[in-house]
């Protein structure tokens, strides 16, 4: 699973995710992509599940890029614990996602395969998504 190698502070304030993306909303590597339409937190496990769904569907051939990185730690208090006594312990890592963000990109497969692979991957994610493609994708070889 994706996680930072080392961090300066192991716990972070929750914060709020607002607005739409101003960066990372254009296709940069592949021909086909999956774009988020929602605000949300995508955790490392969801990203990994989506990545596995993508690579399993395209089998051999094709290349996948993950355009988000879960660098925000989230904490959780143990079950049946009274409130107080400080912040809970780190539970995992999430990527804060805003509408417009490209989550995955793919190349080396035909449009139908890419669309189906992205559909399967989208089911693993907690945000609403849309299949996007580069202008002129599939031109030439």
């Amino acid at each position: 699973m994706l996680a930072p190698k080392r961090v300066k502070y192991r716990k972070m304030q929750k914060g709020r995710v607002r607005g739409v993306e101003s960066r990372g909303f254009e296709m940069a590597f592949g021909d086909f992509g999956l774009k988020s339409l929602d605000i949300g937190r995508v955790d490392a496990r969801a990203l990994e599940a989506a990545r596995i769904a993508l690579t399993r569907h395209i089998k051999r051939g094709g290349r996948v890029w993950i355009r988000v990185f879960p660098d925000k730690p989230v904490t959780k208090k143990p079950a049946e614990t009274r409130m107080g006594k400080g912040k809970g312990s780190p539970e995992g890592w999430v990527a804060a996602v805003r509408p417009g963000r490209i989550l995955f990109e793919m190349e080396g497969v035909d449009r139908a395969t890419a669309r189906e692979a992205m559909r399967l991957a989208a089911h693993k994610l907690p945000v609403k998504t849309i299949f996007v493609e580069r202008e002129g994708a599939g031109l030439g070889a």
Binding site: T55, R60, G61, R63, G108
Partner: peptide, 9 residues
């Protein structure tokens, strides 16, 4: 041309 990717699972 990149070499073929091999499924890890």
């Amino acid at each position: 041309v990149l070499p073929p990717t091999v499924e890890a699972a």
